[in-house]
Design a protein around this nucleic acid. Structure first.
Lengths: 210, 210
DNA sequence: CAAACGAGTGAACATGCGTACACTTAAATT
DNA sequence: AATTTAAGTGTACGCATGTTCACTCGTTTG
């Protein structure tokens, strides 16, 4: 039933519906938080009947885990793109601040999801996010460890800097997400803050490391 | 009905019930997040009938606002006590790290509430928490501005350092709250992290301020 | 071309919810 | 001592939820 524009293979159509469900859940989460979003609400928004939901996810919890996965995959793509940017080698800090703000702005829904649900979400979702962030700290540590100034630091120190960077990234992402639209002044302020924090970390470490 | 141990004036008894309701709501929030806590759950846990709830709060939202107030009043008491501690003048950073960890450990429920609901809670609660945090940044800036090393900084710089400190405080409080009990090693690690971050901020600012 | 599959349907259910309303029964007021 | 006040009770209601089950009917498969 319900001809979806053009005919499509069963798989294609299923995948399409799946994405619609995910998008619906993400949108509803923005306004009320994932935990308050009901299976019926998602189904209604996605334009399917509640029971059809089960053809795609066995529960809202599983749906939440997929949203986590999806959000972090967006994040990783951002980091990969940023590393390709030639600017990054010239001016690591400024470039990072720009990429961060731009990427978060572009995928507010996903980063907002992570921000909110990292502490406020259901247990399974919180656990998944914490795990992803831990992985991410490790990955960033590897990247940082290859940097010229840093290559002879102890691995604990690199790990710690990485943790500080990720923590700051999360904080700044929160700020961008909560930023009202069309306020380039605020945006610039956040970027400036991010730059300063990164400089503090770098300078502080170089200066004080004993 | 239900003789509450010893007789009590009407006011006293009402206040007692009110506190029981607040405690019930706080406890339930810890496990499921405030937004998922229903009026009926709170009433059940508090040992009253749902309709009696309305004698104390006009809605769960209003209850949430009181919890925010209560939590920040705890926080302010902590800061005031810490300022009285003579250690603070000798070794500001170490003392602050200790006080932070100890206080949060002692009132995990309240700080956990703020952590979770700051981004994950209902709109009204989130707004209230953001407002309290803004106030708090301002208050801390006043305290910092009176410090010997800092007294000739521009007020914008002081405000920014204050924001960084509060942000770090929030992050560290999150970590303490999520810390499993009886792990003095983790606790020490968090303290050490907090100390380093504060040193970074101070050193970095002193070094780089242009 | 016939059979099997499977995405989406629609009715039905038990449960928990917020709130309205009429009530009891002590404490407070007169 | 008589009256008023107000915390707390108990019932009842309409509504949204998650999940069940038997179903349709186009796509895929043999």
């Amino acid at each position: 039933m319900s001809e979806p524009a053009q005919s499509a293979s069963r798989q294609e159509q299923k995948e399409r519906t799946r994405q619609i469900i995910l998008a619906a859940a993400l949108e509803l989460s923005q306004k009320q938080g994932f935990a308050q979003v009901s299976l019926r609400q998602v189904s209604r928004t996605a334009g399917i009947v509640p029971t059809a939901f089960y053809r795609h996810f066995e529960s809202m919890d599983k749906l939440g885990l997929v949203l986590v996965e999806q959000s972090f995959s967006t994040l990783r793509r951002m980091i990969r793109d940023a590393q390709r940017d030639p600017q990054v080698y010239d001016n690591m800090i400024d470039a990072t601040a720009n990429v961060l703000v731009e990427t978060v702005k572009q995928s507010k829904a996903q980063f907002g999801f992570v921000s909110r649900e990292r502490l406020g979400g259901p247990d399974v979702v919180r656990t998944a996010i914490r795990h992803e962030l831990d992985l991410f700290v490790g990955e960033l540590a590897v990247v940082l460890g290859r940097l010229p100034n840093i290559e002879n630091w102890s691995s604990e120190d690199v790990q710690m800097v990485s943790r500080l960077f990720v923590r700051n990234m999360v904080s700044n992402a929160e700020e961008v997400v909560e930023m009202p639209d069309g306020r380039p002044d605020l945006e610039e302020q956040i970027k400036e803050g991010a730059r300063r924090q990164m400089r503090l970390i770098v300078i502080g470490f170089r200066e004080w490391r004993s």
